[in-house]
């Protein structure tokens, strides 16, 4: 259906395609652990019905894994004149606009999987916990440039709380 939320006139900057690998393996590891853990009762009791839990979870995870490339393509951000625009989600879409002046701090995180392919995750923190702007899958240099740029922009547009 063509009723997806879309913002016109926005040239989205996409995250690195390598993030597909990170996201895929991250989800895969999590999926294996969860499915293994939920299989334990079924395995111990030999009750065939209990296998339904890990089986249904496995189906959900397989769908999630299959959609990883599209989900990563759905991630986008855009530095507008006065605010940072961020989008994520395929099934559950989310758009956020944060004025630069609202920045409290910027975090750069690198997980082990991120490090393996040379990516970083940038987190833009405001006074509202719900803002939740986390841009994953940025190449290290891009993330650092973006951080410096955001800090500089926030400095010129500093606002109170």
């Amino acid at each position: 259906m063509s009723t997806r939320l879309e913002l016109p006139d926005i040239e989205w900057r996409r995250v690195s395609p390598k993030y597909v690998v990170v996201d895929f393996f991250g989800t895969l590891i999590f999926a294996v652990i969860v499915v293994a853990a939920t299989s334990v009762p079924a395995f111990l009791t030999k009750n065939a019905l209990l296998w339904a839990i890990p089986a249904s979870l496995a189906v959900i995870f397989i769908i999630t894994l299959a959609l990883t490339p599209r989900r990563v393509r759905a991630l986008g951000y855009q530095l507008r004149a006065d605010d940072l625009l961020f989008r994520k989600g395929l099934m559950f879409q989310r758009f956020v606009a944060v004025p630069y002046g609202r920045m409290q701090l910027v975090d750069i995180n690198r997980g082990p999987l991120d490090r393996a392919v040379g990516l970083s995750e940038l987190k833009f923190v405001t006074a509202a916990a719900a803002s939740g702007v986390v841009i994953p899958g940025l190449p290290e240099t891009v993330a650092e440039e973006l951080r410096d740029k955001l800090v500089a922009l926030a400095e010129t547009r500093r606002a109170g709380l």
């Binding site: 009723t3 099934m91 559950f92 956020v96 606009a97 609202r102 405001t126 509202a128 719900a130 803002s131």
Partner: peptide, 23 residues
């Protein structure tokens, strides 16, 4: 602090969206 717009499958089917202001 920021403004957000969400849409899940059900809302998309109904051509609706939900809004959230972050304070």
């Amino acid at each position: 602090q920021s403004v957000a717009m969400h849409q899940g499958p059900l809302l998309r089917w109904l051509r609706l969206a939900s809004l959230r202001l972050h304070t």
